[in-house]
């Protein structure tokens, strides 16, 4: 295993632990955040805030260093412009997220429960990801 493989394995593990501890693998908790009209559960804001509080300084440090520790380049996304594709995609994602309370990370993690609901969601999600790359791949 090269350093990047070890890092990815540990990163995926920490990510899953964080999702479970934060409560994000409970769809009703996510919907409780998205439902600002009634009984509001602000937990998700703390999840995002906590994650960004760790990540933002590390991005700054890595960029100042010029390259990551075990690779020669940082793979930053190629696109930089806000365009219709970004907005349309974000709208559709939000509708799906609000319907069920699953975004990709928690859904993937919850696959291990073997729940038919989760399997159906993830299968459809993977089909959706795959279809876009076949029908309308990013330029």
């Amino acid at each position: 295993m090269n350093p990047t493989s070890v890092i990815a394995l540990v990163s995926g593990s920490l990510f899953a632990a964080g999702l479970a501890l934060s409560g994000m693998t409970r769809p009703e908790k996510v919907l409780g955040f998205l439902s600002v009209s009634a009984r509001w559960d602000p937990s998700l804001a703390l999840v995002m805030g906590g994650a960004i509080a760790v990540m933002a300084p590390v991005v700054f440090w890595t960029r100042r260093r010029g390259r990551p520790l075990f690779e020669t380049t940082t793979h930053e996304p190629a696109q930089t412009r806000v365009d219709g594709r970004l907005i349309l995609g974000s709208v559709l994602f939000g509708v799906g997220w609000g319907l069920v309370g699953y975004c990709p990370g928690p859904a993937l993690a919850a696959l291990v429960t073997g729940s038919l609901s989760t399997i159906a969601f993830v299968a459809a999600m993977l089909a959706g990801l795959w279809i876009v790359d076949r029908v309308a791949p990013a330029k």
Binding site: G18, A20, M55, V58
Partner: peptide
């Protein structure tokens, strides 16, 4: 939720800064 968020941040930071 804050502790879980810090873990998610750590996971992202490790992957970005390391790889």
């Amino acid at each position: 939720s804050l502790a879980g968020g810090l873990l998610i941040g750590l996971a992202s930071a490790l992957l970005y800064a390391g790889a």
